Amino acid sequence: MDLERKFAGGVPVLSNGSVIEGYASLFGLTDQGGDAVLPGAFAASLKRLGSVDRKVRMLWQHDPAQPIGVWDEIREDGKGLWVKGRLLTDVAQAREAAALIGAGAIDGLSIGYRTIRAERDQKGRRRLAEVELWEVSLVTFPMLPEAKLGSKAAEEMREMAAVFLAASEALRG
């Protein structure tokens, strides 16, 4: 697990956040709203964000009042939009998210964006050719069910949840 563990009074304290990664969007798959993201749709947005030193936010359930971490890497590859970041363990909702991920109760990722350019196919479905990416959220029910955290992240969260459980039990002692 990508964490530094310290001990305060015999109780483990986590710092430096907990690493998560996965695909926030997958190219060519139609989501539950009838939209599909085309390869290259994020490229201009990611380039613009990098040029003005702005960040894509990590939110809980698309709530702008609940940032829970930071995305350290965001890139397009042949499969979709891959993200890697850290839940910030100093944030209560991030600790709860880590416990939920660790228990297998949540694993969804979802993108928040503004459509710049889209096309319609013969069936009337939108094909997103360019989007302005604002945020990537951890969610219970992603619009694109295949957009999920990777299995490595889930295993790390299970380990982190076990540490939180041990700390909780030690406090109840």
Rank of each mutant, 00 (worst) to 15 (best):
L49A: 13
L88S: 09
I20C: 04
A94E: 03
G10D: 13
A99E: 11
V52R: 15
K79Q: 13
A98I: 14
P142F: 00
E4C: 02
S15P: 02
D35L: 01
R126Y: 10
K55E: 14
E4F: 09
L165G: 02
A170N: 02
E155N: 00
G124R: 10
A105M: 13
W60C: 02
V37W: 06
K79I: 02
W71N: 10
G9D: 14
P12W: 08
A65M: 10
W71K: 06
S25M: 09
E156L: 02
W71G: 09
L26P: 07
K84L: 11
V136E: 00
R117Q: 12
L49V: 06
G34D: 11
F42M: 02
D77R: 05
G150A: 04
V19R: 14
A105Y: 09
A41M: 08
S15M: 09
P145C: 08
L38V: 11
M58D: 03
G78R: 12
W60L: 08
E155C: 00
A153T: 15
T30F: 09
D77M: 08
S18M: 15
S110E: 05
E119T: 12
R127H: 14
P39F: 09
Q93L: 00
K123V: 01
R54Q: 14
L138V: 15
I74A: 03
A94C: 02
I68S: 07
I20P: 01
D31S: 05
G28V: 04
E96M: 05
K47N: 04
V91R: 10
E4M: 06
T115I: 15
G124S: 03
W82C: 00
K79H: 10
F164Q: 00
K55H: 07
A41V: 04
F7A: 04
E156G: 03
V19F: 01
P67R: 01
R86A: 12
A8V: 14
F164N: 00
W82S: 00
W82N: 00
S18A: 08
A147Q: 12
G108P: 06
Q122D: 13
G80H: 08
E73W: 03
K84I: 06
E132S: 13
G85I: 11
L46I: 12
L144F: 04
F141R: 09
V37R: 10
K152W: 08
E132M: 14
R57D: 12
V91K: 13
A65W: 03
A43T: 14
E169Q: 04
E76G: 11
K6P: 00
A129W: 06
K148G: 03
A161V: 06
G85D: 07
G102T: 05
A162L: 09
L46F: 07
S15H: 14
A8E: 11
R75V: 05
S110T: 01
A170R: 15
A166R: 10
G102I: 02
S25P: 08
W134R: 04
E156V: 05
V91L: 14
G50Y: 01
K123F: 08
L144A: 12
E96N: 09
